[in-house]
Design a protein around this nucleic acid. Sequence first.
DNA 1: TTCCTTCTGGACCTTGCGGTCCACTTTACC
DNA 2: GGTAAAGTGGACCGCAAGGTCCAGAAGGAA
Lengths: 222, 222
Amino acid sequence: MDRKVQKEVGAMLTAKGAATRQRIIEGTSAEVRERGAAATTLDDVRARTSTSKSQIFHYFPGGKEELLLAVAAYEAERVLSDQEPFLSALTSWEAWHNWRDRVVERYRTLGVHCPLGVLITELGRKTPAAQALTAQLLERWQERLRAGVAAMQRIGEIDPGLDADRTAASLIAAVQGGVAVLLSTGRADHLEAALDTTLDLLKSSGRRTPELLHVGASGDPT
Amino acid sequence: MDRKVQKEVGAMLTAKGAATRQRIIEGTSAEVRERGAAATTLDDVRARTSTSKSQIFHYFPGGKEELLLAVAAYEAERVLSDQEPFLSALTSWEAWHNWRDRVVERYRTLGVHCPLGVLITELGRKTPAAQALTAQLLERWQERLRAGVAAMQRIGEIDPGLDADRTAASLIAAVQGGVAVLLSTGRADHLEAALDTTLDLLKSSGRRTPELLHVGASGDPT
DNA sequence: TTCCTTCTGGACCTTGCGGTCCACTTTACC
DNA sequence: GGTAAAGTGGACCGCAAGGTCCAGAAGGAA
């Protein structure tokens, strides 16, 4: 078996080459988080990763655009994996709250340096490829949430009359909106409020189903 | 009385000057909506507004940064005024739905060319002045929504136990999140879903108050 | 060892764009 | 109508930053 690794048609990478390529991606990723995509220059990347211009263009012939796209894909993968294991097992309210806490804590820590936010807002609008990548990420994310909602509906904790996909969409919007506000003001209040509010709706919808009805305790938002 | 208009200390504008200044702002605003702030060059502005470099720097000595800040302020004003008269009279569910329709329709029309989104995401992160402007806009917006929630609480349509400010915050997040998704995918589904979901929660919370209790009809989300 | 491919370093080119300068015109007030 | 301030046009500058090129080093298969 060949020790060289095939990247795509016609492109071979040695172990050393693959390492360099990865180093460039991760260095760029860090740079983008700190300064934004537009403000990140190839010279910054070159300095940070101890490489040279020729290497960047060797591994990313499309130049800066191709590099940023690779970084976006790299980050997109992390967005979902960072929410595990909670995201894949939203089968109890405890799991949902753990997920909520994970999301809030992650973005609170990242603050302005949210990788996805940066890439979505700076790349998504111009590059069709980046836009497709974003759309695909959101779809996968939403599908996980939809599955979680459906699971809760099955055990009677969420009103079966609700549209699971639409509900998942509004959860996505809650997160994205909270992050948007966080990015522009530095405060995570909206993120928490939006998630809590939406989760409260889901909880109370379950309580309202006939067989489990026990009204009176109107979901305390604190 | 002087025909010249005082702008700030030491700066006088004739009617002609004021008109030119305004033309520059509006032209830049349009350019930014179409291409983004970073991609908008002073030459674009110059061509579009039939002016010259010297005029831009005459009216905005701080260069591009000052110009964009002026545009941001101009747009921020429009964001709220575009939601009138609904935003200031959220005293019935009809008013709330009219407001919701106005927001959805506006952003659906604007699509990728959302002025606030562009400015928040491209300027907010770097310029402290722009960030302050954004924060202030969100605060004013949230205060209007908070007042609306409080009004509905007073007439028993929303659970008085809810934190009005926190609820308003989650509505803000719903809008911002929907817009964020719209910006990166071109679809307004999330915006609608998030607003509808949140409004449903508020409605059902009112229904749950003791004196108005008539359970069974679990808020149909369609 | 030999030969081919991949990898690396860095000088160099090109261009786009923010910003400057200065001469000239128009407006406003006396 | 004179004069000073405000408004206007456009040539020009400097530099940052993306991108090119080529010579040479390192690595792998025979």
